[in-house]
């Protein structure tokens, strides 16, 4: 049984078709990557799942419920938390306040406080700088904060849009390791990435997306994958 299932999703903006007939699914506890070059419709896909953009056709299912027409708040309450592209942290709130507002949808204050403590345990750097303005953190720290903030709603699934953007390779590795760790603790993950090699190694399974959102490859990820081969394939897709 799939946790998240996109069934024949098409998205267009006026006449421009961004995604056409996309079929992907994420099973409970899985770490799935969706990779592809710029402009193949990855971000539109994220927006459709998050409820920011309505697909022109097709349906999106989460926990056996049709969430295609739900608003972003409803989808978040269902258990999908989104880490938007480009590290959208609240620069002039403190690190701690960023986390506190992350728990907006939950009214259970004691649960939120416990959650906050567990975030600070898991991300020591956030604990260390908890009273500091979030805008003063480094890129990697901000990405950790964005992920921690998304986790404050206790989601069953994390949807990340290009978390590696603008980060040094070593930091990207740390972020992906973190995602793997979260995944092992039971959070299902859908990672949307341009950075193919590292994403593939981190994930259980991956899709390669081509122009118009068509899936060209679906394969198992993990350490044993021949990354060099995939990379050359991946590059070729881009030139087709």
């Amino acid at each position: 049984m799939s946790l998240l299932k996109l069934d024949q999703i098409s998205i267009s903006y006026g006449r421009a078709v961004a995604v056409k007939g996309l079929d992907i699914h994420v099973d409970e506890g899985e770490f799935v990557s969706l990779i592809g070059h710029n402009g193949v419709g990855k971000s539109s896909t994220v927006k459709a799942i998050a409820g920011v953009v309505r697909p022109t056709s097709g349906s999106i299912w989460f926990k056996d419920r049709d969430i295609t027409q739900m608003d972003p708040g409803g989808i978040l309450r269902m258990g999908i938390a989104v880490v938007p592209e480009g590290r959208h942290i609240f620069a002039r709130l403190t690190v701690r306040e960023n986390l506190v507002v992350g728990a907006t949808i939950s009214r259970d204050r004691s649960a939120n406080l416990k959650n906050l403590d567990s975030m600070i345990d898991r991300f020591p750097v956030l604990g260390k700088y908890s009273g500091r303005m979030a805008g003063l953190l480094s890129g990697g720290e901000q990405q950790q904060l964005a992920i921690a903030r998304a986790l404050m709603s206790s989601p069953s699934m994390l949807l990340l849009d290009e978390p590696s953007l603008g980060l040094a390779p070593l930091i990207v590795q740390q972020v992906f390791d973190l995602l793997k760790e979260l995944n092992e603790q039971g959070v299902s993950i859908l990672l949307i990435e341009q950075n193919a090699a590292q994403a593939i190694v981190a994930s259980d399974r991956y899709y390669v997306m081509r122009t118009g959102g068509v899936i060209s490859t679906e394969a198992r990820g993990g350490d044993q994958v021949d990354v060099a081969k995939i990379e050359s394939d991946y590059l070729n897709f881009g030139t087709v």
């Binding site: 708040g73 938390a81 938007p84 609240f90 507002v101 907006t104 709603s153």
Partner: peptide, 21 residues
């Protein structure tokens, strides 16, 4: 909390919406 959430919408409306504000 309300004030912090309002500041969050000022700082970044997209991110604010993504966490259900």
């Amino acid at each position: 909390r309300n004030g912090r959430r309002l500041i969050a919408t000022r700082e970044d409306d997209k991110a604010a919406m993504s966490i259900g504000i």
